[in-house]
Amino acid sequence: MTPALILFAVFVFIPIFFAIYFSFTDWNGISPPAEAKFVGFENFRVLLFEDGIRRADFFKALKNTAYFSLGVVPMQTALALLLAVVVNQRRLRFKSFFRTSYYFPSITSSIAISMLFLFLYQKNGLVNQVLETITFGAWEPIAWMADPRGLFHIIFGWFGLTLETAPAWMQANVLSLSVWDWLSGPSVALMGIMLLNTWTTIGTMMVIFLAALQDVPREVYEAAEMDGANARQIFFKITLPLVRPTLFFVVTLGLIGTFQVFDQVYVMSSGGPAKTTLTVAYLVYRNGFTNSQMGLAAAIALLLFIIIFTLTLVQRRITEGKKE
């Protein structure tokens, strides 16, 4: 127990303490940390209250991350539950094969998968080819990872609403970003990363659901079948309520994971095109290691922690509330 605690202290507590400390300094990340000047809440003021590029970048990253999370978490949770129910069936053949293959992406190197997806997302890549085939050639190939257009902007465009025709309130600035920008939706490039992220995380979530499903007593299902419940009723009235604690756990994991997404952005897009895949975690890295503003980076990391913590609390409230 003790060695574990020490390791925990050295590698978790002390770094956290220093990260908090540096968020109140102007440390550039290059000179010795002792030379960093204490600047109070300056970094937080710049990020939250001063109109300028640093606040714009922070909220842009927050916006992208929120769209990312809103897209990925429901999708991965629903699909993971669906897969878990499917591979949990008693009468399914090749059960182990399916379980293994669904879990496989989760244990493969995320960097390797990201590199592979870069090719799939090319203009003449597999994704476009498949879409072209299933739409009988109606699909116009796009360079996924270079396309900064937002999903909602594209949809607005179908109804003739573009930046030029947008009403004045859409052009107003809120927190250094125009309302139009806030309403962009995830860009095509970001959606590419979202799909990839969903695909790689489903396996882990499925295994967690599978464990929960196998804990559901067989008798409950048998009783339901005796009472004449159909498959849908069994799923919604029995399976879902009984795995609710696991659902909470999976959504929490998903939320934390998506708010921290970094590696896939680092490999596939470096925050581009047009900063539409700039996530909060990537912004931390960029400020700390390419823009020599480690103090600012630490402040962003701290804000990210506060955001994730709050969201988890809120989400727990909601899930617990449903119990009554």
């Binding site: 930046l163 047009a274 900063k275």
Partner: peptide, 22 residues
């Protein structure tokens, strides 16, 4: 100058949008 990475990122992002006509 120090911190010019922000300018570089801004121009690159802007040009990416300009290339699409946005």
């Amino acid at each position: 100058r120090p911190g010019f990475g922000d300018v570089l990122d801004t121009i690159n992002a802007g040009m990416q949008e300009a290339f699409t006509g946005a």
